[in-house]
Lab assay of single mutants.
Amino acid sequence: MSIQHFRVALIPFFAAFCLPVFAHPETLVKVKDAEDQLGARVGYIELDLNSGKILESFRPEERFPMMSTFKVLLCGAVLSRVDAGQEQLGRRIHYSQNDLVEYSPVTEKHLTDGMTVRELCSAAITMSDNTAANLLLTTIGGPKELTAFLHNMGDHVTRLDRWEPELNEAIPNDERDTTMPAAMATTLRKLLTGELLTLASRQQLIDWMEADKVAGPLLRSALPAGWFIADKSGAGERGSRGIIAALGPDGKPSRIVVIYTTGSQATMDERNRQIAEIGASLIKHW
């Protein structure tokens, strides 16, 4: 067993022997301040990774656009098919120029040779490549099948209805392509620590998230040296922004954090800054 596999296998073990965790309302004060600064709703939840206990939450059962955070769930569904012998990570998928959609920095470079399922998941999570996500959605049967996968996990809230990039439209009061912070946090925890996926697939999923290259201005910008984070960000229309993450000190994750916002007129930089400040408060009061 590799060191990384050992780390993920012992996530519940280490967490069980940690000192009790206590909620700190100071972080919620910052979440509410972010709402004021952005002029928009902000949803927040913080779960203990081992027990699933909610440590703090704000608007945990209000719907927010998922945006690209759905790509972690998508690759979880792909990995479940791999575990069941219905898919192979090494299978190569070929596609054409007509398949390319807006923001496809990886797939646009491989029109000639195609990409493997493993490479597509890596591109979808680490670079948020939209064509990679659409190609992977095709392998599982489309958005409705991802929703069905989530329902089978016990998540009857999260739903995907459309493809990239239309799913980022974020129309107010439109339930399409949305989740709730509580539902997303619980589902992410199941994917990373539950028995739904094999140990190898859980490790692969967290490795992809740990290698995320496009979430630097968010929670990662607030992390002290030595902290662990595996995350996936999302951005959408109407001032929408979000991030889902597993993080913790001492090089291992111990909490799940989900943050979503929508309806702001603020710039992307300002949305990023507010999420980073929430992260800084979380870490300060850990």
Rank of each mutant, 00 (worst) to 15 (best):
Q4T: 09
L79D: 01
G142C: 04
K144P: 11
A77P: 01
M153Y: 08
I11Y: 11
L137F: 09
S51T: 14
K232G: 00
R241C: 04
E26D: 09
P165F: 05
D83N: 04
G76M: 05
G236C: 03
I229E: 02
M153R: 07
A124M: 07
I278V: 09
A124L: 04
T139G: 10
L136Q: 01
L55T: 08
G142K: 04
G114C: 04
L160M: 12
T139C: 09
S57P: 02
M184E: 01
D48L: 04
E62F: 07
T112H: 14
L223K: 07
A77D: 09
E35V: 04
L188E: 01
A170W: 11
P20Q: 15
T193I: 14
S51A: 08
E145V: 12
K32N: 10
G226I: 03
A230H: 01
R162H: 10
P165T: 10
H24Q: 11
R255Q: 03
I206N: 08
A246S: 09
G154I: 02
L73A: 11
A23R: 05
K252V: 14
A222L: 07
H285I: 04
Q204C: 14
A124Y: 00
H24I: 10
A185T: 03
I171E: 15
P249Q: 09
H24G: 14
T261R: 03
D174Y: 03
T186G: 14
C121P: 00
G279V: 05
L47T: 09
T261D: 01
S221C: 11
L282N: 03
T112W: 15
F17D: 03
I125N: 03
T198H: 12
M115P: 01
L205D: 00
V257F: 04
G226P: 07
I275G: 01
W163A: 10
R162K: 07
R118M: 10
I206C: 13
D33V: 14
T186W: 15
K190L: 10
A133T: 11
M268H: 09
A225Y: 13
R255V: 06
I275C: 05
V8P: 10
C121S: 05
Q97S: 14
E62R: 06
E62L: 07
L192T: 07
A15W: 15
G236Q: 02
G141L: 04
I45L: 12
D207A: 15
S281H: 13
F64I: 02
E175S: 12
E102M: 12
G76R: 00
G90M: 13
W227Y: 07
F14V: 11
F14P: 02
I243G: 01
V117I: 13
H24C: 08
K252I: 12
P217Q: 13
L38Q: 06
L74R: 00
T112G: 13
R255C: 03
